[in-house]
Design a protein around this nucleic acid. Structure first.
Ligand SMILES: [Zn+2]
Ligand SMILES: [Zn+2]
Ligand SMILES: [Zn+2]
Ligand SMILES: [Zn+2]
Lengths: 159, 159
DNA sequence: TCGATCTTGTGATAATGTAACAGAGGGCGG
DNA sequence: CCGCCCTCTGTTACATTATCACAAGATCGA
């Protein structure tokens, strides 16, 4: 149950660890962790915030790593397909995965004030919804769970 | 716990009841249930499926009710804002609400084969996710819950 | 009737996402 | 070394989804 992102933590290590974990997974599975893909992952890890594809593309362009939409989308597709990042449907934006490589059903807590995003575990195949889905004969395979509200920092300040 | 849409039911009544329920709510609250808004609601009720804004716009155009995107988006905004319809973020599409007017936290079961959508209740303010969110100090206000899988009809056929 | 307010018509444009194809590069059997 | 296959990249063009801005019409109560 990862809910870092709101809590204070060593964020430098957070980025380094995220990148090296993905690098190792790629090595282990024969995936190519190319410069563009690495850089996009770093950008996603940078702020525990969701970034739009075009935000990322702007950064890549500044750094000479690519200038056309497909460059950003391809890197993001790679990261999402391999479980190193997730798409936040509500925001049309992307975040780095908190536990890369492990297959899971992620849920997200999105602060509407500071836009930070934390990842949590929410297996929708159990719980009340799953139960009534099962009663209706519906078989849940995947689920998008995106909760919006106020993070601890902002709910204090906004009071 | 509404999971109609997959079950066989009197769909003619389903549409009529949906429209009249919304009409009454509008009357009670002084909202204008204009022809475009009514027609968009009918279209959404038609198939228990999510329709894109441009699908709706095409239908409106055929019927002479409007031809430019804002026409469709404004009607949809009205319906969503007043709880008569919901947006399915995963599909960038819209469905009629199953219990119009009542304030609720809807969840959706989306069949990946036949594209039908059923609405269920899933108050994310209780349950495991809410609990760990609370532990992290996060206050959930709204939630997008969209489960994808196979509906009873399709899971039999697809086996 | 008058004005305030909500609704609609319409053209333009922004934001997000894909298709298609040519070229660069690296491993690998010949 | 060469040519083949494969993945990744560069680029053009395009498709889809959504919003802005402003004028005109409809509604409703004072
Ligand atoms: Zn961090
Ligand atoms: Zn916050
Ligand atoms: Zn029905
Ligand atoms: Zn189905």
């Amino acid at each position: 149950m990862e809910t870092t992102g709101f809590a204070r933590h060593d964020h430098g290590a957070c980025i380094r660890d995220g990148v090296t974990a993905v690098a190792e997974h790629c090595r282990a599975e024969g995936l190519q962790f190319t410069p563009v893909r690495r850089r996009v992952l770093e950008l996603l890890l940078e702020g525990h915030r969701a970034l739009g594809a075009y935000d990322i593309l702007d950064r890549l362009r500044e750094e000479g790593l690519g200038s056309q939409p497909p460059v950003a989308y391809r890197a993001l597709d790679f990261l999402v397909k391999n479980g190193f990042a997730h798409k936040i449907e509500r925001l049309n934006a992307f975040v780095a995965c908190a536990c890369p490589g492990e297959s899971h059903m992620p849920a997200f807590l999105i602060c509407r004030k500071c836009d930070k995003v934390a990842e949590a575990e929410a297996d929708m195949r159990e719980g009340k919804l799953a139960q009534s889905a099962a009663e209706a004969g519906f078989h849940i395979e995947r689920a998008v769970v995106e909760a919006e509200g106020l993070c601890p920092n902002c709910s204090g300040a906004a009071a």
